[in-house]
Simulated scan of single mutants.
Amino acid sequence: MDAPFGLPLPPPARVVVGLSGGVDSAVTALLLQRAGYEVLGLFMKNWEDDDQFGDCPAEVDIADVQAIGAQLDIPVQVVNFAAEYREQVFAHFLAEYRRGRTPNPDVLCNREIKFGVFQQHARALGAQAIATGHYAALRRSRGQVHLLCPADPDKDQTYFLHALTQAQLAPAGMPLAGFTKREVRALAAGAGLPVAQKKDSTGICFIGERPFREFLSRYLVAEPGDMLDPHDTIVGRHIGLPYYTLGQRQGLGIGGGHGDGNAPWYVAGKDATRNTLLVVQGHDHPLLLSNALLSETASWIGGGPPDVRFACTAKTRYRQTAEACEVEALDDGRCQVRFAHPQRAVTPGQSVVFYRDGECLGGAVIDTTTPAAQTLSADAVSA
C-alpha cells in the first residue's frame, strides 16, 4: 500500500502532528486520522519572554490545541522548546540585526526547531513519522525526498523550508499539499473543528501584532545616525539601523528641501561601520536594483547542487514571483547568482531560494549584492 500525503509509511503508522492551534495543523491531523493513521498532537511552546505581557498568546493556542484534540479524540502534548528556540534561532536573529542585516527567523525555526528538536521529541514518543500543516509537497523517488510547490500558489511555503535536509524530510509528511486555504477551512468546518474560522497568524510569532521597533528595543540599543543621499549629503537622521530594511519608504521622516522635488525617499543601503543609512529618491532608483548576488553557504534539498552552473528561477523574498537566473555553485559552498532582469531591494540576511520545474532545489542567505548601476553583461544570464 502506498503512503498518502508524501509520508514514508502507510496507515496505521503512528504520526506525531505539530499542532499550532491554527486551522492548517488541525486539518492536517484530521486528514491523517481519516486516512487511518494513529495520530498524536504536539504543541511546541517556543517563546516565553512575553507571557507576562500577553503579547504571544500561547495560552489561547494551547486551549485551541486541547479543543482540537478533544474534537478528534486524539492525545495532545505540550512541550517547551523555548530554551532551544532562544539559543538556536533568536540569538542568530539578534546577531544579524546587530550587523545591520535583516534576517528571516522562520527559515531557521523550521530547520532547528520544527524539523529538529520537534522531530527528536516525536521519535521519543514512538513516532514512525511526523507531519506539519505547511503548504508544500513531498515526493519520494529512488531514495530521495523532493520538496515540491503545492497546489495553492498563494500559500506556497517552500521558501521557508528550503534549508531542510534529506534526514529531516525522510520521516515527514505534508498533507495540505493538494488543498487551497478555502478547502482547508471547509474541511475544518465540516468536521466541527473549533478553529475553522480562526484568523491566520501573521509575521514573526514572537513579535506578534505589536510594532516592530517596540519589540526590538527590548533587546537592542538603538544608535541614531545620519541618513545620506548618494552624494554623501546628510538629508536626515535615523533612529538605529536595525529598524530599517531595504526598499522601505514609510517612517523615514525626511522633510522638504532635500533632493529631487517631492519624489519619495527609499532605504537603499546600510553602513554598519559608519552607522549611516543610504537613502535614494524614486521607487526604481538604480541603487535599489541588483543584477547579481553572492550568497553564504547554500543548503540543497538533494544534498548538493544539480550542477556547478545551472539555470533556474529564484526568489529573494517570500511573496515574489520566481525570477530567471543563473547559479554558479562555488568551491567554498557559496553561490553566485546572476539574474536575467534587475531585482529590487535584494536584502542581505534574507534568503535566495532556487526552483526548477515546480521543485524547490534549496537556497542560501544573501550576503552581498551587485547594484544594477554596475551593469553586468547580458550574456552572463542564460536562464
Rank of each mutant, 00 (worst) to 15 (best):
S217W: 11
R213H: 15
I207L: 13
T245Q: 15
G247E: 00
K181W: 01
D260V: 14
Y266T: 03
G208W: 07
L277Y: 01
L216Y: 05
R185G: 06
S217H: 07
D232W: 11
N291Q: 07
Q281P: 07
L220W: 07
P224A: 07
K181T: 04
A170N: 04
R185K: 10
T245I: 09
L289W: 08
G192M: 14
Q250T: 15
F206C: 03
L228D: 03
F215C: 13
M174D: 12
P224Q: 02
A170G: 04
L176T: 04
R185L: 10
D200C: 15
Y219C: 08
G225S: 08
F212W: 14
T273P: 11
A222C: 10
D232G: 13
I234L: 09
P175G: 08
V279M: 02
F215Y: 12
L278R: 05
G282Q: 06
S217M: 07
M174R: 10
A268Y: 02
W265A: 00
L246A: 02
Q281T: 03
G261S: 10
R249T: 05
A186C: 07
R218M: 13
V279Q: 02
D200Q: 13
L287G: 02
P242E: 00
G178C: 09
A272N: 10
G247P: 04
I204P: 07
